[in-house]
Simulated assay, not measured.
Amino acid sequence: MIYQDIRTYYLSGAKNQRMVKYELIRLQGDDYLVKVFDEQTQGIADPKHIVQIDEFKITRAGYQEEHHSSGAQSELANSFEWYVQSCCQDHRNKLD
């Protein structure tokens, strides 16, 4: 199967400005597979190797479950697009 609907984010962390690459692959509807890539830097001279360090899913069902349980009222803060970016940023912050 060929997946063409792919978005790429480069995110820095709350404590570290090093950027990590997040590729969001739309599986179907509003379900994404997120692949996380980073440079392997310890003990390796240039050129650096890019390795996949993690993989997780973000789904519309997860968003709806979190949205309904939080009770938040702001439409912008609760948009699915915001949720997707927030999940990626939260993941990136945990890497530091």
Rank of each mutant, 00 (worst) to 15 (best):
M1D: 08
I2R: 09
I2C: 05
Q4P: 03
Q4A: 06
D5S: 10
D5Y: 08
I6C: 08
R7L: 11
R7G: 04
T8L: 10
T8I: 15
Y10P: 01
Y10N: 11
Y10C: 06
Y10V: 06
L11P: 09
S12L: 04
S12D: 14
K15G: 14
N16I: 12
N16P: 09
Q17M: 11
Q17Y: 11
R18P: 02
M19E: 15
V20H: 10
Y22K: 03
E23F: 01
L24S: 03
L24C: 06
L24M: 09
I25H: 02
I25M: 02
R26V: 07
R26E: 06
L27C: 06
L27M: 11
Q28K: 12
Q28A: 11
Q28N: 08
Q28T: 10
G29F: 07
G29V: 07
D30Y: 11
D30V: 04
D31A: 06
Y32G: 00
Y32L: 02
Y32I: 01
Y32C: 01
L33A: 05
L33C: 07
V34I: 07
V34N: 02
K35S: 08
V36K: 03
D38N: 14
E39R: 14
Q40K: 15
T41E: 10
T41M: 10
T41V: 13
Q42N: 08
Q42D: 07
G43C: 01
P47F: 06
I50A: 10
I50D: 12
V51E: 15
Q52T: 03
I53A: 05
I53G: 04
I53S: 04
F56A: 01
F56E: 04
K57Q: 12
I58F: 00
I58K: 01
I58C: 00
I58D: 00
I58P: 00
T59I: 01
T59D: 02
T59A: 02
R60P: 04
A61K: 14
A61V: 10
G62D: 04
G62T: 01
G62C: 00
Q64P: 02
Q64G: 06
E66A: 05
E66C: 00
E66G: 00
H67Y: 10
H67I: 04
H68D: 15
H68N: 15
S70H: 02
G71E: 05
G71D: 03
A72Y: 12
A72R: 14
Q73H: 11
Q73P: 04
Q73L: 14
S74C: 15
E75K: 14
E75A: 14
L76C: 05
L76F: 12
A77M: 09
A77N: 09
N78S: 11
S79N: 02
F80Q: 03
E81P: 02
W82F: 10
W82T: 09
Q85M: 10
S86W: 05
C88K: 02
C88T: 04
C88S: 08
Q89I: 07
D90S: 12
D90P: 02
H91Y: 13
L95N: 07
L95P: 08
